[in-house]
Amino acid sequence: MYARAFAGLFLRDLYVLRRELFPFAIRVCMNPLLFLFVFTYVLPHMSGGAAMNPTAKMAGSGGGFGTVLLPGLMAVAIMFSGIAAVALPLAQEFGITREIDDRVMCPLPVWAVAAEKIVFSAMQSVIAACIVFPLAYYIPSVPVQAHVNSWPFLIVVLLLASLVAGALGLTIGTAVKPQQIGLIFGVVVVPITFLGCVYYPWAALKPIPWLQFGVLVNPIVYMSEGLRAGLTPSAHMPDWLILAMLCFFLVFLGWRGIKGFYRRVLG
């Protein structure tokens, strides 16, 4: 019975997403497309072909800034999808439309309704990452070095990162007042992106120790480092640490998010 209700919710979300596939793809593409275009195509052309970023040399033999960006931008796409798929709609549903009420009336435990949001968002995150990959691979003027050492590791990282993004979206969506959801972009999303080892590998922060350790509380760090480890020959954190921290954030944010969800739907 629970499985069917869960499948019903998932099917409804899939159906609505299918109808909005085009806006979804645009939303996913726009940020990485412009970023890659300016930083790995336009700027290198201006400065005569040299990669601008000092961390580019850490990307391994011959890889440019593009190699650093490939996993980073995939991580950003994954995180953005989590916010866009869960936090924004949830803020609206709690605040204005109360559509959530009909979902909560399903013959399902309330936590399962919240879990469905995370799982569906994770699916969108995986799709978003897959859309970003070819962009980040083909646009940079300096060829990108991409190589998969271990498929199981990459797949596990991708799934964990996507679930963490969904849990993050749920936590934000339930913790923030609907009127303040716009603020979240400036106050939460932008900082965690810029300080998420997206545009530089974590190891490159060595000269700034307080920052290198400070960013460890940011879940995006483990998403980008995980994909960096899985996809490129760049320097990266130890694999076990990445997996352990992604699991930790999934449990922590999932717990916070579901707790927040209970608080919002039950009086």
Partner: peptide, 8 residues
């Protein structure tokens, strides 16, 4: 339709 699906 979807409400019916939610209920199995």
């Amino acid at each position: 339709f979807f409400h019916c699906l939610f209920f199995g």
